[in-house]
Each structure stands twice: as C-alpha cells, then as structure tokens.
C-alpha cells in the first residue's frame, strides 16, 4: 500500500490540472477566475499535505504532546489564503469593469470588439 502515501499529491495534481484546463479552455472570465482559484487551492493542499507528520498534532506546544506537524507551511498558506481572496477580488473588479466597457465577459467577443475598432 506504499502508493497510497502519494494519493494526496495525485489528487493535488488532478485539481491543479482541472483548474488549468478551466483557465485555458473556458472563455468566460468569471469561470477563468474560478479555475485560477481551483489551482490555488490545490497548491494549498500540497503544502499542508507535506507538513503532516504521522501521529503528530496541531503545532500548539503543550506538555501533553511530543510530536507536532510542521508549522512552517501552515504559516505560508495561512497568509496566502487571505492574500488570495484579496487578489481574487481585484480580478473580479477588473471583470466588472470589462463588462461595463464591453458589455460582455466572454473572451472571444471581447477580442472581436477589439478588432472591430
């Protein structure tokens, strides 16, 4: 059952590729941002999977416990999540502005409008 130890990473890669696929094939800008968020969340899971220690507990030091999971990836991802939502909001704001200027959020229609100028 040694391959089960890699299952986390494989799901991470699957999610990453699902997000990647959504970004490159879908023309709708909101859908693209959702795809980017999928990609982002998969990276979070990759980091947190690596930080886990078998038999460990949450890294809040107490005399009762001896083994703790690695706190460093938690720190990195904790800040990345909040930064992620802030940058997602910025992306969504851009989408709203594009909609107001072009009247559409579909990529091909935007390109078409750009060319017709």
């Amino acid at each position: 059952m040694a391959w089960l130890g890699l299952y986390n990473y494989w799901v991470v890669i699957f999610l990453m590729m699902a997000g990647f696929y959504a970004v490159i094939t879908r023309g709708n800008l909101v859908k693209k941002i959702v795809g980017l968020n999928l990609f982002q969340t998969s990276v979070f899971i990759l980091y947190i999977s690596m930080s886990k220690v078998q038999g460990g507990t949450a890294p809040i030091v107490d005399n009762e416990f001896a083994i703790y999971s690695n706190p460093l990836p938690h720190v990195l991802i904790l800040t990345a999540i909040v930064v992620g939502v802030a940058t997602t909001a910025l992306g969504l704001a851009l989408v709203v502005r594009i909609r107001e200027s072009y009247g559409t959020v579909e990529e091909d229609e935007i390109h078409h409008l750009d060319k017709s100028f």
Binding site: F44, I45, I48, S49, S51, K52, V53, G56, T57, A58, P59, I60, Y68, S69, P73, H74, I77, L78, I81
Partner: peptide
Amino acid sequence: VIFLVLDAVDV
C-alpha cells in the same frame, strides 16, 4: 475540513 484533519487548524 482536509486542513483540519491534516493538523493545520489555523489554516
């Protein structure tokens, strides 16, 4: 929920 199971309570 996965983060919780993986001991990353803050995350």
